[in-house]
């Protein structure tokens, strides 16, 4: 039994401590947000926040996470009641297949929590560990900009950096 704090709730999970967090989130806790993309820390599809910092859940065994605050995309809102960053992704229609998007939202979330008005270059640099194959990048950046508190970003500048 491992105890995890996920999206504010303490959960008991019957998993071996060396199981990567990703598998526990998906299978034991039935959360869909974090995705398997590579299992190697190369793509960011599995990104979650741990104590507010971005983390690759595919490479983090649950046994190391005692007492730490884990946030997944489900912790930011729901399909019916999306959080502000999620809403920004919806407003910008920032997805094609969307497989990368939950990871993108989480990585962006950790940026905005630390730096509410990042420059475009800061956004690009911060997002660099996450891959999107469909080419939804411009919209993802637009969504992050929209959710930021940058003044000039209040209106959509989709397609432009």
């Amino acid at each position: 039994m491992v105890e995890l704090k996920v999206n504010g709730a303490v959960r008991q999970v019957d998993a071996a401590p060396e199981t990567p967090l990703l598998y526990v989130l998906r299978e034991d806790l039935q959360l869909n947000g974090a995705k398997f993309g590579c299992g190697l820390g190369q793509c960011g599809a599995c990104t979650v926040a741990i104590d507010g910092a971005p983390a690759f859940s595919c490479l983090l065994p649950v046994g190391l996470l005692a007492g730490r605050e884990i946030t997944t995309v489900e912790g930011l809102g729901s399909p019916d009641k999306p959080g502000p960053l999620q809403q920004a992704f919806i407003d910008e229609q920032a997805a094609q297949c969307g497989y990368c998007i939950a990871g993108m939202v989480m990585r962006a979330h950790t940026l905005l929590a630390r730096n509410p008005s990042p420059t475009d270059d800061e956004i690009l640099e911060h997002m660099s560990p996450n891959l999107c194959r469909c080419g939804a990048h411009m919209r993802i950046v637009a969504a992050i900009r929209r959710a930021s508190s940058r003044k000039e970003a209040s209106r959509s500048q989709r397609g432009a950096l």
């Binding site: 869909n32 995309v73 399909p79 999306p82 992704f89 229609q93 969307g98 998007i101």
Partner: peptide, 21 residues
């Protein structure tokens, strides 16, 4: 028109065969 599939995808709703349980 806004895509019908996006809310689930940004908020962890079931959306993919990968999510079938």
């Amino acid at each position: 028109v806004r895509r019908v599939d996006i809310p689930n995808k940004v908020a962890g709703g079931p959306a993919y065969v990968q999510d079938l349980r």
